[in-house]
Amino acid sequence: MATTGTQRHGDANVTKAAALLRRGGLVAFPTETVYGLGALATDGRAVARIFAAKGRPSFNPLIVHVPDLAAAERLAVFDPLARRLAAAFWPGPLTLVLPLKEGHGLSPLVTAGLDTVALRVPAAPLARALLAEVGGPLAAPSANPSGRISATRAAHVRAGLGDAVDMVLDGGPCPVGLESTILRSAPLALLREGGLAAETIEAVTGPLPRDVTPGRVQAPGQMSSHYAPSLPMRLDVTAPDPEALLIGFGPVAGDLSLSPEGDLVAAAAALFDTLHRADAEARARGASRIDVAPIPETGLGRAINDRLRRAAAPR
């Protein structure tokens, strides 16, 4: 997809950015907190491009941006406290972690295979205009290489991500300049300090329990055994075994394949869905194990292997 460069805000450029997103592109856009690296949250391949662009070392859940509470309610289940928080602080720099609603339609990559989703309604006018024009939810982590300083100006995005981004909407500097505060409503916990002060939130909730341990924002994937199917798994298998279902990749053909072409972006997008399908098909045919072909330990391959190793760990 051709890179269109940095564009000033304006109706024509918002329309152009929305069209890019609907075609699977990546668009960096300003929120009131930081610039986000946006992709259509229902498009697994587009979401996988976020991980590739950022050099993200593992699949972490992503925040989904929506235009309003009604759009959020189509994706997640709101309890009374979550509704009060949304009424008090949306639009604004608050992210709520809530149970997924059946039929949500989000790519499993967005939630890292979890049963919750992180949702936010941004306040920045350009972000709101883009969401309205796209007509769908946008997954948008901070628009910077993984582990580096967050971008609060369009120039930061280009310096960090270069041509990995199809378009940057320049809305000037972000007024908050700090990532959103993340809350879980049930049970109530502050998961990340951010652009909305905890003391302000406590006026609505009362005292906030803290659960801000690094790596635990909403990522039980830190556990050594996680993402596991019901059957045992064996990795780096290059030949079929009659006792197992084989997930192939590239030149290793299998009963299923993450990508016959050896495309790591496509494999990342397909990973969770393929594991679900492999588990069901293996059990249906009476196989005793799921085997997986070797995945290169480069780029997104490192993230794919991270999740496969967790899935294959003893449990």
Results as ranks from 00 to 15, higher is better:
Asn305Trp: 15
His156Gly: 07
Gly92Phe: 09
Arg289Cys: 15
Ala28Gln: 09
Ile149Asn: 08
Phe249His: 05
Thr6Cys: 14
Asn13Val: 04
Gly147Gln: 11
Thr205Pro: 05
Arg307Cys: 03
Leu231Ile: 11
Ala278Asp: 08
Gly162Ile: 11
Leu246Lys: 04
Glu179Phe: 13
Ala155Tyr: 02
Glu199Gly: 13
Ala39Gly: 13
Ala39Asn: 09
Val77His: 04
Gly221Tyr: 05
Ser224Lys: 15
Ala123Leu: 08
Ala52Cys: 11
Arg210Cys: 11
Pro187Cys: 04
Ala151Arg: 01
Asp79Gln: 06
Val237Ile: 14
Thr6Pro: 06
Ile295Trp: 01
Gly172Gln: 14
Ile182Ala: 07
His226Lys: 11
Gly215Asp: 09
Thr42Met: 06
Gly215His: 05
Pro296Ser: 12
Thr152His: 07
Ser230Pro: 10
Ala139Lys: 07
Val204Tyr: 11
Pro61Ile: 00
Leu100Asn: 08
Gly38Lys: 09
Arg84Asp: 12
Gly92Cys: 11
Lys16Arg: 14
Gly177Gln: 13
Pro187Leu: 01
Gln7Arg: 15
Gln218Val: 03
Leu308Phe: 11
Ser58Cys: 10
Ala253Leu: 10
Ala228Ile: 04
Pro125Thr: 02
Ala139Val: 01
Ile295Asn: 01
Asp11Tyr: 01
Gln218Asp: 15
Leu178Gln: 13
Gly135Met: 11
Leu131Arg: 05
Gly24His: 02
Cys174Arg: 03
Pro251Tyr: 00
Pro229Arg: 13
Asp255Leu: 00
Val157Cys: 04
Ala189Ile: 04
Ile304Tyr: 05
Ala155Glu: 15
Glu179His: 10
Arg83Ile: 00
Glu199Ile: 02
Phe89Cys: 05
Gly248His: 01
Leu20Met: 14
Thr200Leu: 13
Glu193Ser: 11
Ile50Gln: 03
Leu81Asn: 14
Glu261Val: 07
Asp115Val: 02
Thr274Ile: 14
Asn305Val: 15
Leu85Thr: 12
Asp273Phe: 08
Ala293Leu: 08
Arg309Lys: 15
Ala278Glu: 09
Gly206Tyr: 05
Leu235Ile: 04
Pro229Asp: 09
Asp291Pro: 09
Thr116Ala: 03
Ala129Gln: 13
Ala41Lys: 09
Ser288Ala: 14
Leu62Val: 06
Glu199Asp: 14
Phe59His: 03
Leu275His: 01
Pro125Asp: 01
Arg128Cys: 09
Leu106Lys: 07
Arg153Thr: 02
Ala266Glu: 15
Ala253Asp: 09
Ala151Thr: 03
Leu169Phe: 15
Asp163Gly: 13
Gly194Ser: 08
Met223Cys: 13
Val47Arg: 05
Ser142Glu: 03
Gln7Ser: 14
Leu308Pro: 07
Pro251Asp: 03
